[in-house]
C-alpha cells in the first residue's frame, strides 16, 4: 500500500509537470502526425498494407523516444534525483511512477495516431491495438530506465536513443508480427518481453538512481 501511494504521488507529480509545461504531449502528437504524413509519401502506391503497418510501428517507437528523451529532464535540471532518492520510499517507485506517466503520454499520442493511421492508410485489427498496448508497457519500462541512465552521464539525452533503440528491436518485431500474421504467437512474445524487461528494469533502477 505504501508502495502504491508513493508511486501515485510520483506519477501525479509527473502528470502535473506535463500539465504545466505542455511540452511533451503536444510534441509527441505533432511528431507522430508528421511522421505518418511523411510515410504516406515514403511508401509507393500499391505497396502492401504490411509495409504501412511497419511504418506505423516505426512511428510509435520514434514518438515514444521523443517522450522518453524528455522523461528525466526535470529531475536532471535541478539535481532532483538527489532529493528523491533520499526519501524513505523504495527507489523503484521513482521508476514506476515515471513509467506510468510515460505510458499515459504514449497512450494519448496513440489515441490520436491510430485513428489517423486508419484514416491515412488502412484499417487496424483489434490485435494490432492490443499489440500497441503491450508494446507501450515494454517501451515505457525500458525507455524510462535507459533515460535515467542517459541523464547520469555528460552526454545527457544524446545517448538515450543509442541506449534504447537496440533494446526496442524485439518490440518492433513483435509488433509487426502481431499486425501482419495470424495467431497469438507475437502477442505472447510481446507479453514475454514486457515481463522480462519490466522485472529487470524494476530491479535495476536502484543501482541507476544513486551510487550509494
Amino acid at each position: 500500500m505504501r508502495y502504491l501511494s508513493d508511486v501515485a504521488a510520483l506519477t501525479r507529480k509527473d502528470l502535473l509537470l506535463e500539465l504545466r509545461a505542455k511540452e511533451t504531449i503536444p510534441a509527441m502528437l505533432l511528431f507522430v502526425l508528421s511522421a505518418l504524413t511523411i510515410f504516406h509519401f515514403a511508401i509507393p502506391r500499391g505497396s502492401s498494407d504490411v509495409a504501412a503497418l511497419g511504418l506505423l510501428w516505426v512511428a510509435i517507437v520514434f514518438t515514444s523516444l521523443l517522450g522518453l528523451t524528455r522523461a528525466f529532464v526535470p529531475e536532471r535540471e535541478q539535481g532532483l534525483m538527489d532529493a528523491l532518492v533520499l526519501a524513505p520510499c523504495d527507489r523503484s517507485t521513482i521508476w514506476l511512477g515515471k513509467t506510468i506517466a510515460v505510458i499515459a503520454f504514449l497512450g494519448i499520442a496513440e489515441v490520436v495516431a491510430l485513428p489517423a493511421f486508419t484514416l491515412f492508410f488502412s484499417g487496424l485489427t483489434l490485435k494490432t491495438v492490443a499489440a500497441v498496448a503491450l508494446a507501450d508497457i515494454g517501451i515505457a519500462a525500458v525507455g524510462t530506465l535507459t533515460g535515467a541512465m542517459a541523464v547520469a552521464g555528460r552526454a545527457r539525452e544524446l545517448i538515450q536513443p543509442l541506449l534504447f533503440l537496440p533494446l526496442s528491436i524485439p518490440v518492433i518485431v513483435g509488433g509487426i508480427g502481431a499486425s501482419a500474421t495470424a495467431g497469438p504467437k507475437f502477442l505472447l512474445f510481446l507479453a514475454l518481453y514486457d515481463t522480462v524487461f519490466v522485472l529487470l528494469s524494476w530491479a535495476a533502477f536502484d543501482f541507476v538512481a544513486a551510487e550509494a
Binding site: P74, E77, Q78
Partner: peptide
C-alpha cells in the same frame, strides 16, 4: 545542496 532541490515548474 547548492541547488534548492525543488521542481521549478511546480
Amino acid at each position: 545542496g547548492h541547488e534548492p532541490l525543488v521542481y521549478k515548474q511546480l
